[in-house]
Design a binder for these strands. Structure first.
Length: 337
DNA sequence: AGTCCACTGGAACTTGAGGAAT
DNA sequence: ATTCCTCAAGTTCCAGTGGACT
């Protein structure tokens, strides 16, 4: 039997683990709860747009408040959709109905049938619906539909506050009374507190010094997800090497790994052609689209049409892998640093 | 200050995979 | 089996844009 040198409870060291209290988000928690609470008395709730940079607890907090509310009010239905894969209307309603324990078959069911079923449910019970990465939803009608349900609370989550600028006027006005809640990047000392909380339950005493935590915090740039995953990787590495303490060198290495991981998760979602485009772009600092497509076509055996390539570029931009500058004639692409 | 035209992205259509019903 | 439905992803077509070049 081997004794753990550093790790006590590995679960606590994952970014998805929800501690029963979320540090430094007390005000935000209260605002979200206040906006939702009318639903418990049969009154219309206030829809919300939660925005802010990655790793600031937007999703975790929305989920947490909805879960808490559900404990007090068991007949509250809840659903969670992620716009990342740009799901269609069908996918959105399918997922929501599943979350609400409604069995629906995938094939043979039309989108309209799903919507009808959902509508019926929405009339009979209060709901809280969380839409993560709401700016990625390609079918704007979905958001418009959802906004119409009176006793369903809609919580949209996005990185930027200007989700609606590119959208249809109807959608903008249907969300005109939406409460916008900004989640700022954590300050370094706040990250340290969050890490301390994890260390307390996840690691053995004395496994990491507070100056070690400060290093992680300052590197993380206010992103709790990256900070926690750095801590986890550092702990695992120390454990593997049989050390009692996490050294500064280990922290530095682990941070680099954590950032790489973050990116490779997005890269995994690319198909072969998209990956090739990315690799071509990697060779250059910056490339106009025509040159990029030309270079790519020399490598590819059966290149898809230009229209498809343009779509790929959009997608990779949405994933935060590349950046584009300029409009029509002189658009240039580069890797995101 | 006007025309040209390379490039963008919306829309309509096609193809292929996959589940359900018969 | 096969028929009937769905959706995602690709293609074709094309109007619209806004630099480039008179």
């Amino acid at each position: 039997m081997t004794r753990n040198t550093v790790i006590q409870d590995a679960r606590v060291l994952t970014a998805d683990y929800l501690p029963n209290r979320m540090l430094h988000r007390g005000n935000e928690r209260q605002v979200i709860a206040d906006n939702l609470s009318p639903i418990l008395e049969g009154l219309p709730p206030i829809d919300m747009l939660i925005y802010g940079p990655p790793g600031t607890g937007k999703t975790a907090m929305a989920q947490y408040v909805v879960d808490e509310l559900q404990k007090h009010s068991p007949n509250l239905l809840s659903g969670f959709v992620d716009g990342f894969g740009q799901p269609s209307r069908f996918e959105v309603y399918y997922k929501l109905l599943r979350d609400m324990n409604e069995f629906v078959t995938r094939g043979g069911t039309s989108t309209e049938e799903l919507v009808d079923k959902f509508e019926e449910k929405a009339y009979n019970a209060p709901m809280a619906i969380v839409v993560d990465e709401a700016d990625q939803i390609k079918d704007e009608k979905v958001l418009y539909d959802l906004s119409r349900f009176q006793n369903a609370a809609i919580i949209l989550i996005a990185n930027r506050g200007d989700v609606f600028v590119d959208m249809d006027d109807r959608i903008r006005s249907s969300f005109s009374s939406i409460d916008e809640i900004r989640f700022k990047a954590y300050a370094d000392d706040e990250i340290v507190d969050i890490l301390k909380d994890r260390v307390k339950y996840g690691l053995r005493d004395e496994a990491i010094t507070s100056s070690g935590l400060k290093i992680i915090a300052s590197k993380s740039g206010g992103d709790a997800r990256v900070a926690i995953s750095t801590l986890r990787k550092a702990a695992q590495k120390a454990e593997r090497e049989g050390l009692e303490k996490i050294s500064k060198e280990i922290i530095k290495e682990s941070f680099t790994d954590a950032v790489k991981d973050n990116r490779s998760i997005s890269l995994k979602k690319l198909n072969e052609d998209q990956r090739k485009l990315y690799d071509v772009l990697k060779e250059e600092k910056q490339l106009p689209s025509a040159k990029l497509f030309q270079a790519y076509k020399q490598e590819a055996e059966e290149p898809p049409s230009d229209r498809t390539l343009r779509r790929y570029m959009k997608k990779m931009e949405a994933y935060g892998l590349i950046e584009s500058k300029g409009s029509t004639r002189d658009r240039k692409y580069s890797l995101k640093s």
